[in-house]
Amino acid sequence: MKVRTDVLHVAGRQLKEYTLINANGMEVSCLNYGGVITKIMAPNSKGDFENVVLGYANYDEYIDNPHFFGALIGRVAGRIQDSSFKLNGKNYSLQSNNGAHHLHGGTTGFHKVIWQTETFEYEDAVGIILVHRSPDGDGGYPGNLAMKVTYTLTNDNAFTIVYEAIADQKTVLTTTNHSYFNLSGNLKTDILQHNVQMDASRFVELDHELIPTGRILPVDNTVFDFRQGHAIVDGVHSVDQQNLVALNGFDHYFIFDHNKKENLTITDSVSGRTLTVKTDQPGIVMYTSNALNDTVELREGKSSKYLGVCLETQSSPASLEHDGFPSILLEKDEPYKKTTSFVFKTI
C-alpha cells in the first residue's frame, strides 16, 4: 500500500498527480486540480490490469474539461433551472453555462479548483484528503463553505469517496464525482453491452432541455427498470420519449429504494469486470455519454458516443423547484457528510 506523487506542468501550472496503489496492484490516480480522477487500473477476470475510466491524452485539456472527465462536482451537481433559486426569501442568480441553465457549479465550480492535499498510508488503506474553502458568493452561492473530500483505496479493491462540508449560513449543496466508467479495459469497446442492475423503482422525467418536469415516474414496463438488470443498449434503441430527449440514452436521476446492500452493479461479461456502487445518497444520475463525440483525444484514442457511463450519486437540484425530491438544502452549521464506494470485482 502506497501513494506515489508526481509533479506535472499542465498549461503553465504546476500540479500534482497522486496514485493510490493497493496490495493487489490496483491503482487510482487523481489530480489536485479539480480532484480529477485521471485513471483507474483494475483487473479483469484474467488478472490483467487496464484503465477503466475516460481520461484526456493531453493533461492540458483538464484545465477547461468541458465534459467534466473524472472531476469533483459542486457546489451543486446537475442542472439548476433558469440559473436561479430562492432561499429565505432572497433570489440568487448563478452563471448560465448550459443554455439558460446552471450546470455542475458553473465554470468556477469545484472542478476548476486547486485543492489543498494531504496523503495517508495505512496497513489496509491508502488515500488522499482534499480541502477547499469556497467563500460567500462564490459562483453566486451563499455562505462560506468549508469542503473536505477523502479518496480511499483498500485491499478489497474498494475506492471510496467521502464528501464533508459545513457552511456559516443556510445554502444549497450536493456534490458528486463525474468519472466516466468503461469496464472493457483501455476503452476496447463502448459501454452499450454493459449490464446494469439498479435498486430503483422510480426515476425523474425530463423536458427537452433535460430539466426535471416535476414528475417522478415508475420504472415499471420501461427500459428504465433495471431492477432485474439489462444492457444499456436497450435505452439507445428505445422509442420512449424520455430516452429520445436524452439523445438516445440515459441522463436521468433515479431514486434508490435502498432495499438492497448494493445500490447499483455494472457488469461487462467480456472482461469479467463488475463495478458495484454503494452509497448513502438518495439517488443517482446515470449518464451514458450520449453527447460525447469523436473530437476528444483520450489516452487510448478518440472519444465517441457511449464510450463511458457516469454514475453521479447525489441529491436533486429539482428540489429547489418541486416538492417530493431529495433536498439539497444545507442549514447553517449543519454537518454535510455523504459517502459513495465503487467496488471492483471479477466474475
Rank of each mutant, 00 (worst) to 15 (best):
S96I: 03
L192Q: 13
T117H: 12
V196M: 14
P135L: 04
R133F: 13
V196Q: 06
H104T: 05
S179P: 12
Y92V: 10
P142I: 11
G99M: 09
L145R: 10
N182G: 10
I191H: 05
V126M: 01
N97H: 12
G109F: 02
N97M: 11
I191E: 11
S134V: 07
M147A: 07
R133G: 09
D156Y: 06
N177S: 13
N91T: 15
A146Y: 06
A100G: 12
F181M: 04
I129M: 11
L103S: 01
P135G: 07
A165E: 09
H111L: 06
A167W: 05
K188L: 11
D156V: 01
N97Q: 05
S179A: 15
L183C: 03
E123R: 12
K112T: 15
N97Y: 06
G109D: 08
Y92D: 05
E121F: 03
S93W: 08
L145V: 06
A158R: 11
G105E: 05
L173D: 01
I191N: 03
N155H: 11
V162N: 07
T175W: 00
F120M: 05
K148E: 15
G106I: 08
Y151P: 07
T160M: 12
P135N: 03
V172T: 10
G89V: 10
N97S: 10
V162P: 00
A158N: 04
I128D: 02
S184W: 09
T150N: 00
T108V: 15
V113P: 00
Q116R: 13
G137H: 08
H101M: 02
E118R: 13
N91H: 10
H194F: 02
N97T: 05
Q193R: 13
T171P: 00
N177F: 11
T174Y: 07
S93F: 14
Y92P: 02
H101L: 07
E164D: 10
D190C: 00
D138V: 05
Y92I: 05
Y180M: 12
E118S: 13
H101R: 01
L183I: 04
G105S: 09
H111I: 00
E164H: 01
E121C: 10
G140C: 03
G139I: 02
L145Y: 09
L103C: 06
A146S: 14
T119N: 03
L173M: 12
T175F: 02
F181P: 01
V113H: 07
Q169Y: 02
N155G: 14
E123N: 12
A165I: 04
L103E: 06
G99W: 05
K90A: 14
K148T: 15
N98W: 04
V113A: 12
Y92A: 03
T108H: 11
H178W: 05
N97V: 07
M147K: 01
D124I: 03
V113I: 15
A158I: 03
A167N: 09
